[in-house]
C-alpha cells in the first residue's frame, strides 16, 4: 500500500470508520428512505415562515446542536482520534463538527425536489425564510445538492466525514504530524473505496473540491450568527444550547 500502509490496515481503518459512522447517524438509510416523500404541508411551511426570527433561529440551533452531539460520538469511535492530545481533539471538533454535519446532511436531502429533513418531515428552502439569511440557506441547499450528485455510498460518506474532521488545515494543532498520519490513512482508504465504486476516475478529486465550499459555509454561518446576536443578544445568551454557544460564539 501507499506510504507503507498495508491493505490490511487500510481495510481495518475503513471498517472502523464505517462502523463508527453507522452507529452514530441520527437516522438509518432505511429510515431516511421511508421518510423521503413525507413533506411538510403548505400550512406547515407557512407556519415556519410566520415564526418570529429568533424562534426559528433557536429551533435551528437546537437541531444543529443535536446533530453535533452525534458527530462528537462519531469522532470518539474513530481509531486514533482519542489517542490525539486533548487540545487537538477539541480543536478538530470545534472547527470541523459543523462541516461534518453538513456532509451528513446530504443523507437527509432529497435532490429530486430539493427538500431537507427538518423536525420529522422534508421541506424546501422557503421553510427557513424567517431566519433572514437566505444566502446561507441557499448555499447550504446548493451544497447538499452538489454532494448528492456525486452519488456517494454510505461508506464513502463515512470516510469523507472522517477526512473532513481529521484535518491538518486547522490552526493551532499541537501534534500536526500525528493528525497528518491519521488523515493520510483515511484518504488512502477513501481513495481505495472510491476507485472500487466509481467509474469516474475524477470522483475523488470532485469530492475533495467540495471542501473549500464547506469551510466557506461555516464562515458564513458564523457571520450570520454574529449579525443575529447583535439584534437578539438575549435569545442567544439565554435560549441557545450551551454547546452551540461554546462552539460558535
Amino acid at each position: 500500500g501507499p506510504n507503507n500502509v498495508s491493505m490490511g490496515e487500510l481495510d481495518r481503518i475503513a471498517q472502523n470508520i464505517i462502523k463508527s459512522h453507522l452507529e452514530t447517524c441520527q437516522y438509518t438509510t432505511e429510515e431516511l428512505q421511508q421518510l423521503a416523500w413525507q413533506t411538510h404541508s403548505y400550512e406547515e411551511v407557512k407556519m415556519y415562515q410566520s415564526k418570529p426570527r429568533d424562534v426559528l433561529w433557536q429551533q435551528c440551533a437546537i437541531q444543529i446542536t443535536h446533530a453535533i452531539q452525534y458527530v462528537v460520538e462519531f469522532a470518539k469511535r474513530i481509531s486514533g482520534f482519542m489517542e490525539l492530545c486533548q487540545n487537538d481533539q477539541i480543536l478538530l471538533l470545534k472547527s470541523g463538527c459543523l462541516e461534518v454535519v453538513l456532509v451528513r446532511m446530504c443523507r437527509a436531502f432529497n435532490p429530486l425536489n430539493n427538500t431537507v429533513l427538518f423536525e420529522g418531515k422534508y421541506g424546501g428552502m422557503q421553510m427557513f425564510k424567517a431566519l433572514g439569511c437566505d444566502d446561507l440557506v441557499s448555499a447550504v441547499f446548493d451544497f447538499a445538492k452538489s454532494l448528492c450528485s456525486l452519488q456517494l455510498t454510505e461508506e464513502e460518506i463515512a470516510l469523507f466525514s472522517a477526512a473532513v474532521l481529521i484535518s491538518t488545515d486547522r490552526p493551532w494543532l499541537m501534534e500536526p504530524r500525528k493528525v497528518q498520519k491519521l488523515q493520510e490513512k483515511i484518504y488512502f482508504a477513501l481513495q481505495h473505496i472510491m476507485q472500487k465504486n466509481h467509474m469516474d476516475e475524477d470522483a475523488l478529486a470532485k469530492l475533495i473540491s467540495r471542501i473549500p465550499t464547506l469551510s466557506a459555509l461555516c464562515t458564513l454561518h458564523t457571520e450570520e450568527l454574529q449579525a443575529f446576536q447583535q439584534l437578539h443578544p438575549e435569545t442567544v445568551n439565554v435560549l441557545f444550547p450551551p454547546l452551540y454557544k461554546e462552539l460558535f460564539n
Binding site: 452531539q69 486533548q86 450551551p242
Partner: peptide, 16 residues
C-alpha cells in the same frame, strides 16, 4: 479547557 467545558465533558464521557 474552561472555554470548551461541554465539549471536553462529551469527550470524557464513556462511549454510550
Amino acid at each position: 479547557k474552561e472555554k470548551h467545558k461541554i465539549l471536553h465533558q462529551l469527550l470524557q464521557n464513556s462511549t454510550s
